[in-house]
Design a protein around this nucleic acid. Structure first.
Lengths: 258, 258
DNA sequence: GCATAATTAAATGTCAGACTTTTAAATGTC
DNA sequence: GACATTTAAAAGTCTGACATTTAATTATGC
């Protein structure tokens, strides 16, 4: 492990990169313990705070975990689906909000990905997945449901659809994409009428999945995409009409640019 | 921004989370400068190294960037597609390698995602994308190409296919998934015969995309998935046969191998 | 002899303060 | 007015210390 004190890149970055590469290459295996901070500092001829900064970087990416105490230290972490999923949601959410990704683009990506899952889900889903989908559909029909709760239920519905494919890699990828879209979806006000339309489509999709009919499921998702886009277009147009004088700089709101 | 010194979670984690939340919620906007490390330390009643550790965590996720010098400091970073893409590749690669994801599972996920892109790509691809695909196909046919170079070209081909959809969100998601699979793909030895088969399918797919024929493209991808799986199965089986590498001359010593 | 309590040691977490390097702005000089 | 010098602010780094957590060790009591 070579560290160059004269390099222009920060020492802590060099150290973090070196350790990360060692993990990726397999030189360090899961659950292996790294040398203690003091030992690392000695070996690399840097101070302990510098080593610590490097370890924090790795910790932020869930590449290592640290334990205090006598037998403590930094250990190579087995990256779990949960960890990977959370990271993906954070990254994707920020990417969407910071780069003025249009609602249309995000929506298209989301439904394209879901359509990829649907056929697998139609073949493999368990009765559990169907049950979850039905439950969420029912929840979506409840009167007095807030828009946010409606969105959350929508995410849960699609999550069940995706999980039905029985492929954890697919689940982690897609669930991240779907959840990252939630802030965008939350901007929409769902009227009673539009909710009805969405619920009807959800039912169609659930029926198709239950009947192991991949084609019908894909068609249902297509219709749902169309419906969602139409809905969003209406909302944005309505907002544009009455908003012009309003707050010029709304930093948090992802912008729906064409 | 509230920090609890008596909490069981590390101060640097609390600080990093607080700042991250502020960024996600939009309270801190892109390119905004955070207070200097000393100021933050004062405000939060912690020491500067602790603040620094927190900032390193955020830096590792590309949420902030730091600049030295008089007008330096930590700035909220605009997460670029490139940054997000790199993070995703690292995460996905580790996830696959650390969780014993089977080749079949990863392969299924990859082709499912690609099939999601293909129809869009067939509609929107530019001549540039077609040209790239043709170039890579040609490269794949060159004699004397190493297996690694063949794989790299394969990734480039699929990358072009995905980019053809003209949806950056989709590109970033898929390219990450495809690239993360490369280490798995690199385990395969491609015989001249199997390369021929793959190249033929690549040609079919490129033709379909060029002809704006979504269905044919999807079918081509399906066939390619089948072919890839068959190939992998053969390789793994062959390896199993000759892998009991212990050339022991059976002295009757019972070995505890799995 | 065994179970429990106290001690100890190793490791991370935190702090304080100093020094170095980088960078841009302010100042001075021609 | 253009260029060189000084200065100040900020991140980067180092040293050394103390606090806290945790598990192993030792001591104690029955």
């Amino acid at each position: 492990m070579k560290i160059d004190p004269n390099s222009s890149t920060d020492l802590s970055v060099q150290i973090a990169d070196a350790i990360r590469d060692a993990i990726i290459s397999g030189a360090l295996i899961v659950d292996e313990r790294l040398p203690s901070e003091s030992e690392l500092a000695d070996q690399l001829n840097v101070s302990r705070p510098t080593v610590r900064e490097a370890l924090k970087r790795l910790g932020a990416q869930s590449l290592i975990r640290t334990q205090r105490g006598a037998t403590g230290g930094a250990f190579v972490n087995r990256l779990s689906y949960t960890d990977a999923y959370e990271q993906q949601v954070t990254t994707a959410t920020l990417l969407l909000s910071m780069n003025a990704v249009s609602f249309e683009t995000a929506c298209e990506a989301r439904y394209a990905l879901e359509r990829a899952c649907a056929p697998l889900s139609a073949l493999r889903r368990t009765s559990d997945h169907i049950a979850t989908m039905r439950t969420e559909i029912f929840r979506q029909g409840q009167p007095g449901l807030t828009d946010e709760a409606f969105c959350a239920s929508d995410v849960a519905f699609h999550r069940a659809l995706v999980d039905g494919a029985g492929n954890p890699v697919l689940s982690y990828q897609l669930a991240g994409a779907v959840e990252a879209m939630q802030p965008l979806m939350n901007m929409i006000t769902f009227t009673a009428r539009s909710r009805e339309a969405i619920i009807a489509l959800h039912t169609t999709i659930a029926d198709a999945i239950e009947a192991s009919d991949p084609q019908a499921a894909v068609i249902g998702l297509n219709d749902l995409e169309t419906e969602t886009l139409k809905l969003a277009a209406n909302v944005f147009e309505a907002r544009k009409k009455k908003s012009p004088p309003a707050p010029e700089t709304d930093p948090g709101a992802p912008q729906a640019t064409a």
